[in-house]
Simulated assay, not measured.
Amino acid sequence: MKTVLITGCSSGYGLETARHFLAQGWNVVATMRTPQADALPASERLRILVLDVTRPESIKHALVQAGPIDVLVNNAGIGLFGSFEATPMATVREVFETNTFGTMALCQAIIPHFRERGAGSIVNVTSSATLAPFPLVAAYTASKTAVEGFTASLAHELKAFGVRVKLVEPGYGPSTQFTTNGQQRMQGLIPPPYEAFAHSVFAGFADLAAVTQASDVAEAIWLAANDRSERLHYAAGADAVALSLRRGVA
């Protein structure tokens, strides 16, 4: 029976991915900054652990508690929507600490264990913002694009050791808490000169015919985790799939 460790399981994609792997009979280590015992159905194959990906000691402690794992899913992330002009660099750094450096830190911590075993999979979750430019998410897109380049290089680096590295690129998911979780962070990021433009962008999102559901992402992560081929990109959601086909990375 295989074991997966998933970060960012308190809601959205991480929560649904944990449910999906449990349904497939896997052992699941669901990690969260603030554990919620009732977030997932009770199971002898489930453990919920505290993990803050921005803190090295938290990473070390969580991996010791988790024990041997077969798949690492780097899903934890924070959102940011607003004009780059109005975004403090401290906020940009906060986004990178979780989305980029947190992902890198988890990878660096687990790689020795996978390398020594000659097996293991790392699945890094980014965004369809890396597949096509979107306005008012410049800093967020930069944090996810950095992960794309990092992952592509790491896949080559670890191939010789039998370790697979994958990218899952979710589309626009209105059912997630992307905006809700980042409201405080986003205060003041749409100054008056940008208000009309921002309203037009919001209206465009509201009119989208195809969006991404959490189940789409969970299924893509499941596929990536079990795919032994050299495929790197896995678009998740109808909108992301359309963008990836347009870009030729599906």
Results as ranks from 00 to 15, higher is better:
residue 210 A to C: 05
residue 108 Q to G: 01
residue 4 V to N: 00
residue 72 L to R: 00
residue 107 C to M: 11
residue 168 V to K: 03
residue 91 T to G: 11
residue 221 I to D: 10
residue 105 A to F: 07
residue 145 T to V: 15
residue 162 G to Q: 04
residue 90 A to D: 12
residue 66 A to S: 05
residue 76 A to P: 05
residue 115 R to Y: 07
residue 250 A to G: 07
residue 90 A to R: 13
residue 213 Q to W: 08
residue 4 V to K: 01
residue 230 E to C: 08
residue 23 A to I: 08
residue 161 F to I: 01
residue 104 M to T: 13
residue 187 Q to T: 14
residue 219 E to Q: 04
residue 81 F to S: 10
residue 167 L to R: 10
residue 242 A to Y: 07
residue 168 V to F: 12
residue 175 S to Y: 09
residue 167 L to D: 06
residue 132 A to D: 12
residue 131 L to C: 00
residue 4 V to G: 01
residue 225 A to Y: 07
residue 153 S to F: 11
residue 186 M to E: 13
residue 62 A to D: 07
residue 3 T to I: 05
residue 112 P to D: 00
residue 18 A to R: 02
residue 240 A to H: 04
residue 25 G to H: 01
residue 181 N to E: 10
residue 142 A to Y: 10
residue 88 P to G: 02
residue 132 A to H: 12
residue 242 A to D: 13
residue 72 L to Q: 01
residue 32 M to P: 11
residue 215 S to D: 12
residue 190 I to S: 14
residue 151 T to V: 10
residue 120 G to D: 02
residue 184 Q to A: 15
residue 128 S to F: 11
residue 215 S to E: 14
residue 168 V to A: 07
residue 183 Q to F: 12
residue 143 S to P: 10
residue 104 M to P: 09
residue 99 N to D: 08
residue 6 I to T: 00
residue 121 S to L: 04
residue 155 A to N: 06
residue 30 A to H: 03
residue 208 L to R: 14
residue 65 Q to G: 08
